[in-house]
């Protein structure tokens, strides 16, 4: 917790500031009094049991939902009013489902990264260059004209990263991106994300695998309705926040069923 606090004091302008947010879908709150900052250039790993509100928190951070209480700011603006879509690269949990069945090429998907900048009209030379660069950066140039559905799971994930890179995003949000990807490709994938983060891209990652998070993330937030930990990965391993978050789940369930 101390690391986060000092960071907050150091830089006045976090990329995302979640301030005392409560949110629920109708009935019981999914998130309760959550406050968290994401600093520019950081790599935040969000961990917690199933149904702990991780994806909801990410939606709130990106302004896709509005909090019931509290405020969320994104790039210094209220998150829901923020409209520079090209600064956000988002790979949703179910993103690759459509990609499996739909006839669409790698290049067509990566081009979508330019859509927020150019929704109508012809692509400029800069647009096309950004697309080529993105393809090359994640190493899928030779796959550009292949149908996305006929790629391996690991290759497909790179396509979505390339889409975010093509839009020259400042923030990359990934919601369990490696579900169904083999171990070796996963290692490579997180290596790529690590490298991209090192070049200054801010990353938020929701991931089941705690090991991945503690290896690559610069910050860890452990969540289960409430925030149990927010800070340095090394500190996180030493605390009992994880077992508390997972254990609390049981407790809540029992409590609710009374």
């Amino acid at each position: 917790m101390t690391t986060a606090t000092t960071e907050r004091q150091q830089s006045g302008n976090p990329l995302i500031r979640v301030d005392d947010v409560t949110f629920g879908y109708g009935g019981a709150p999914v998130l309760e009094s959550v406050s968290i900052d994401v600093e520019p250039g950081s790599f935040l790993g969000l961990v917690g049991p199933n149904g702990s509100g991780k994806s909801t928190l990410l939606d709130l951070m990106l302004g896709l939902r509005r909090p019931d209480e509290g405020t969320v700011s994104l790039f210094g603006e209220p998150a829901h009013e923020f409209d520079a879509g090209e600064r956000i690269g988002y790979v949703a949990q179910d993103a690759t489902k459509a990609a499996r069945d739909m006839p669409i090429t790698v290049r067509e998907v990566v081009e979508m990264g330019r859509y927020p900048r150019r929704l109508f009209g012809r692509f400029s030379a800069a647009d096309r260059q950004a697309i080529e660069d993105a393809l090359e950066q994640v190493g899928i140039t030779d796959l550009a004209s292949r149908r996305v559905g006929r790629l391996s799971g690991g290759q497909r994930q790179r396509v979505f990263i390339a889409r975010a890179l093509a839009s020259e995003a400042d923030l990359l949000a990934l919601d369990e991106p490696t579900v169904g990807v083999d171990a070796e490709s996963r290692e490579e994938f997180y290596g790529l994300i690590h490298d991209l983060n090192a070049t200054g891209l801010t990353v938020i990652l929701i991931e089941h695998d705690i090991g991945v998070v503690t290896t690559h993330a610069t910050d860890v937030a452990c969540l289960n309705r409430q925030l149990f930990f927010d800070g340095d990965p090394e500190e996180f391993v030493e605390t009992d926040a994880l077992s508390q978050a997972y254990g609390k789940d049981q407790h809540i369930l029992q409590h609710d069923h009374k």
């Binding site: 896709l64 956000i88 988002y90 459509a98 739909m102 067509e108 859509y115």
Partner: peptide, 17 residues
Amino acid sequence: RPLLYVTFDATAARAAR
């Protein structure tokens, strides 16, 4: 373009505003 983006990945399209 917007129709394709919404068809392919509506969540990302929303995040891209």
